[in-house]
């Protein structure tokens, strides 16, 4: 059943990404890279929350064999690999960076690339600290 859950969670993540991107574009009123930035930052924060939960439960379960039930591990896999993986996207972030650079905004492209990435690492750490 795990592949089915991964498929559903990934599809849900991709749909949410599409919706957030479109809502941000409608609000800004033109095509923008901000929607995907919001998605990647939010997705990294959620992945941090899930990773913290996985680590905390692994540490708590370490003294006991079979402490973590199979369904808990499946839920963790579906949330991290399925939902967060389908929600966040690397390819669009890279293509957006190239487009910003080619439309004569190399400084904005560099800020877009490095700013989003460092923000994602920071938010991931923040989410991790909440649940770990």
């Amino acid at each position: 059943m795990t592949p089915l859950y991964l498929f559903l969670a990934g599809g849900l993540g991709a749909c949410l990404r599409f919706v957030i991107d479109r809502v941000v574009e409608r609000r800004v009123g033109r095509r923008t890279t901000s929607g995907i930035v919001v998605v990647n930052l939010l997705g990294s924060f959620i992945l941090g929350l899930v990773t913290g939960w996985i680590h905390a439960s692994a540490v708590a379960g370490a003294p006991y064999l079979h402490y973590l039930s199979a369904s808990t591990m499946q839920m963790q896999l579906v949330l991290s690999v399925g939902f967060c993986g389908g929600f966040t996207t690397w390819s669009t972030a890279m293509v957006d960076t190239v487009r910003l650079g080619r439309t004569g905004k190399p400084g904005l492209a560099a800020f877009h690339l490095l700013g989003t990435f460092s923000g994602a690492v920071l938010l991931l750490q923040l989410g991790y600290l909440f649940t770990a």
């Binding site: 993540g13 997705g43 990294s44 992945l47 967060c84 993986g85 996207t89 390819s91 990435f117 991931l124």
Partner: peptide, 10 residues
Amino acid sequence: GGFTTYGTIA
């Protein structure tokens, strides 16, 4: 979009 992932690299 689903194939690539940003969070894992971060």
